[in-house]
């Protein structure tokens, strides 16, 4: 090796390594990006199917500033999104919405299904949580708690601008009305957190979508399973 000046050697090494590394990263990104995108859409679609039993196809809509709903490509992640689920005949099964809020340890993110026929939440699925295993995670597994979301009433009041009865968390076994959520003893904070985030999300979304299922009619090229 001839002896170039140290500064030149250092610069040459770093630039060379930088170029090679940059190239490698770009290649890896180009190869994997479409697969990752597909994985993301599939994961979200699987969640939508889970909270909207009977749905076999989905489409993504975005809530616009003027309150209208616009069909957008499935890979969209920004903005206020609502995922419509359709049955085999193309009829609207319901709408799936994401909600998040503070749990016992960290933010809980979930997706819930809304049925226009029942005017109620008909299923929830936790997407992300760091709740205590065995305690807080019972919100995902406890059948009694999950039964809260077989038909959780979110009907609107006469003016159509707010929920007729806000979703309310009550102590275990004290549920009397369809808009109340029975908490789990020993996981009160997690179960309340979910009821609260559903309440906040429903209060925002129901006025925007409940009265007009036709805005979510199946667009051309809806993503079929």
């Amino acid at each position: 090796m001839s002896a170039p000046s140290p500064a030149l050697a250092m610069t040459r090494t770093l630039v060379g390594a930088g170029v090679v590394c940059g190239f490698l990263i770009v290649v890896a990104y180009e190869l994997t990006a479409p697969i990752i995108q597909e994985n993301r859409i599939e994961a979200r679609q699987a969640a939508v199917f889970e909270v909207l039993p009977g749905a076999v196809a989905t489409a993504t809509f975005q809530l616009q500033a003027d309150g209208s709903l616009q069909a957008v490509p499935d890979e969209t992640t920004a903005g206020d999104l609502v995922f419509a689920g359709y049955d085999a005949q193309g009829g609207l099964v319901g709408a799936a919405l994401e909600a998040q809020g503070m749990g016992y340890q960290d933010t809980i993110r979930l997706i819930y299904g809304y049925s226009f026929d029942k005017d109620a939440i008909i299923g929830i699925k936790v997407l992300e949580s760091r709740e205590t295993p065995g305690l807080g995670t019972r919100v995902e597994t406890d059948p009694v708690y999950q039964a809260n979301f077989d038909a959780l009433d979110v009907s609107l009041d006469a003016a159509g601008q707010a929920l007729a009865n806000p979703i309310e968390a009550v102590g275990a076994g004290k549920k009397q009305h369809p808009w109340q959520v029975d908490c789990i003893t020993g996981a009160t904070i997690s179960s309340k957190a979910i009821a609260n985030m559903l309440g906040t999300s429903a209060a925002k979304w129901m006025p925007a979508i409940a009265a007009r299922p036709e805005a979510l009619a199946r667009p051309e090229g809806a993503h079929v399973q």
Partner: peptide, 9 residues
Amino acid sequence: YAIAAISLP
């Protein structure tokens, strides 16, 4: 990238 492509979970 590879892990995200193999399995998101």
